[in-house]
């Protein structure tokens, strides 16, 4: 029993990270119908920039803030330089563009930083807390709390603020949104900044536990996508639930089946979801217009 509890706790921690990546996917997907495969690189950037800013002498909170702001700026640049010039391109081209961007960011990180694994100190120390016979690191609580806070913040933003409603309107009908005077280009900028910032936050929160390196992004992007799909592409609560579920599934696979194949769990989920219920748990059914 304590064993199971341990798996659930570590699964929830990893799941919270996947949920944050999935939320990042969801924001951009809703604003533009684009799946941004560079999403995982934002998590890597969040961790790496914090590491290096902290090493350069900045206090940790300041370093983390800097990382989030810089990553958000990189997200905006990605939209301006690579996505906007390709508006109207076929999906295959957009896939290649965002994957190209992710490889580019990774290549740049390898040059600007290095190829080593890094971490920085946990926010509230490394003494495990006992929970029902298992233990959890204080940093895990930070990660889970961070995911919940981001989710609630996004919910408030999209339902209570005028800007958030404008983003929603754009996702429903771009042309109509333009006609009622919404600046859709600004909505895109905002979505990329928000999405990149959330990715970076995930990186800041999780680096003390999992460590980070220039090449951790791609796996996170794939798992975040799997989580978003499991929950239903485009649905924020789907992203949250999908992320946690995937994290739990992975932890249980590692614990009870084989740790070598824990990464396979995500792909088997992807394939199973795609075939059994392509719209995910919370996703809407779409009809193609001819």
């Amino acid at each position: 029993m304590p064993e199971l509890m341990q798996f659930l706790l570590s699964g929830a921690t990893v799941g919270a990270v996947y949920a944050l990546v999935a939320l990042g996917f969801t924001i951009i997907y809703n604003a533009s119908d684009i799946v941004n495969f560079a999403q995982g690189e934002f998590v890597m950037l969040g961790g790496m920039i914090t590491v290096f800013a902290h090493m350069a002498g900045l206090p940790l909170p300041l370093a983390a803030l800097l990382a989030i702001v810089v990553t958000a700026a990189i997200g905006v640049a990605l939209n301006k330089l690579a996505i906007e010039p390709a508006r109207g391109a076929p999906v295959v081209s957009l896939i290649i563009i965002t994957i190209g961007a992710s490889i580019f960011i990774r290549g740049a990180a390898q040059l600007v930083f290095d190829k080593q694994l890094h971490r920085f100190p946990a926010f509230s120390g490394d003494d495990p807390i006992a929970v029902l016979g298992a233990t959890i690191l204080p940093q895990s609580l930070w990660v889970i709390a961070g995911a919940l806070a981001v989710f609630i913040g996004l919910w408030l933003f999209f339902t209570k603020t005028l800007t958030g409603l404008a983003v929603l309107a754009t996702s429903n009908n771009r042309l109509a949104a333009q006609l009622v005077g919404i600046n859709t280009s600004w909505v895109m900028t905002l979505s990329f900044a928000l999405s990149a910032g959330i990715g970076a936050l995930a990186g800041v929160l999780v680096t003390p536990i999992t460590l980070t390196r220039y090449d951790v992004g791609i796996a996170l992007a794939l798992k975040g996508f799997a989580a978003a799909m499991l929950g239903g592409m485009g649905s924020p609560h789907g992203a949250l639930v999908g992320g946690i579920l995937l994290g739990l599934l992975e932890a249980l696979t590692a614990g009870y089946i084989s740790s070598q194949y824990k990464d396979a769990a995500a792909f088997i989920v992807i394939l199973a979801v795609l075939f059994a219920m392509p719209q995910g748990i919370f996703g809407a059914k779409r009809t193609e217009r001819v």
């Binding site: 390709a86 081209s93 563009i97 190209g100 490889i103 990774r106 740049a108 040059l111």
Partner: peptide
């Protein structure tokens, strides 16, 4: 060699934007 990933990524993006 260190720039290989950087170049590969850049080529992917530029080709899709300018020479689809």
């Amino acid at each position: 060699a260190e720039y290989e990933q950087l170049m590969l990524g850049l080529i992917m993006v530029l080709v899709m934007i300018f020479m689809r």
